[in-house]
């Protein structure tokens, strides 16, 4: 297992290097002078003289490949440069904001899993009853709600009008409720429907008939057969959701003044803070590749066919 893991991690390296080259080139070839961006981001007067000084300071006068090599060699030592805006090392700043985002997404993730399984199985079990129709309505509505509007609605009702939950910042448990819900509801809406479908797909598998024919109780069939396979089919999707949640907190952080990476990144984009943007893209890419890897391994581990792989035996 450990050998497979390290091999798979190793095979990710070329993708990441390739990606870093593409991003580096893209950022250096698009119109807009990084030197100007640097000056405006650090709120210095943009004069001809200043641009010249900064161009040399940042090494922008050197050929692109030389810049890349120097960026890459310092990246190997975890030095990704400093932010144009603050002049602070990017890694440090990122690590300062990242925990808040992780907290938010992990809670949202758990909420999504819980509600997807409960809602999905309820609507599959009570299919074509009001439970099913209700969950269908919820999922269409939930998938059509702009998440920023949902956030404001929740804020307006629960925070401003009813005063149950605070409106922003981190702190107690109550601070988490509204942002987590805002983040989770659209995903619950989409994936509970998907889970229902995959449960009904399991129903059609041939060994389900045999299980009934040998007189197992509906409860056993539901829990041991249907739910189990439904959850296994859901697994790759859950990986995607986790990635989405980690990288997709911009809007929620904006609405609830959440001090996370999303807001940090938004500022960087508006201010054209190139080193920060570049670092963030690489972090996101690595995160997704890593999540995919974890899902793959988890799936292999949970599927006895892959766990006990014998050579040359193929199974349906």
């Amino acid at each position: 297992m450990l050998r497979i893991l390290s091999w798979r991690l190793f095979t990710l390296v070329p993708s990441i290097i390739l990606l870093s080259i593409v991003v580096f080139l893209a950022l250096h070839l698009i119109p807009g002078d990084p030197a100007v961006a640097y000056l405006s981001a650090s709120q210095l007067p943009i004069t001809e003289e200043a641009i010249e000084r900064v161009t040399i300071e940042l090494g922008l006068d050197r050929p692109v490949w030389e810049q890349y090599v120097s960026w890459f060699s310092s990246a190997l030592t975890m030095d990704f440069g400093t932010s144009y805006m603050t002049g602070e090392p990017i890694v440090e700043e990122f690590l300062f904001y990242f925990p808040a985002t992780v907290e938010l997404s992990v809670w949202a993730f758990l909420t999504v899993i819980l509600f997807v399984i409960v809602l999905g199985s309820a609507s599959a079990y009570f299919r074509k009853t009001w439970v099913d129709y209700g969950s269908r309505l919820f999922s269409i509505v939930g998938a059509s709600l702009p998440s920023f509007w949902l956030g404001f609605l929740l804020l307006y009702v629960f925070s401003m009008t009813l005063g149950i939950f605070p409106s922003g910042n981190r702190g107690t448990f109550a601070h988490y409720v509204l942002p987590v819900l805002t983040l989770a509801i659209p995903y619950i809406a989409i994936y509970s429907r998907l889970f229902r479908t995959s449960l009904l797909e399991v129903e059609k598998l041939p060994w389900m008939f045999s299980a009934r024919a040998r007189g197992l109780s509906e409860k056993t069939i539901w829990i041991k057969f249907q739910l189990r396979h439904g959850v296994l089919a859901l697994l790759p999707v859950l990986g995607i959701v986790m990635g989405y949640l980690l990288a997709g907190t911009f809007i929620v952080e904006n609405i609830f003044s959440w001090p996370g990476v999303g807001r940090y990144m938004m500022n960087a984009i508006v201010q054209r803070d190139y080193p920060v943007i570049q670092f963030y893209i690489l972090v996101i890419a690595c995160m997704f590749l890593l999540i995919n890897l974890i899902v793959d391994l988890l799936q292999a581990w949970l599927d006895p066919r892959q766990r006990h792989q014998k050579d040359g035996v193929k199974h349906v």
Binding site: S15, I240, G243, I277
Partner: peptide, 20 residues
């Protein structure tokens, strides 16, 4: 390879590179 990354995030990163 592309479908490993969610579309919103890709679009967001593109805007990040190309500017608003």
């Amino acid at each position: 390879w592309m479908s490993a990354f969610p579309s919103v995030i890709l679009a967001f990163l593109f805007v990040g590179i190309a500017g608003p």
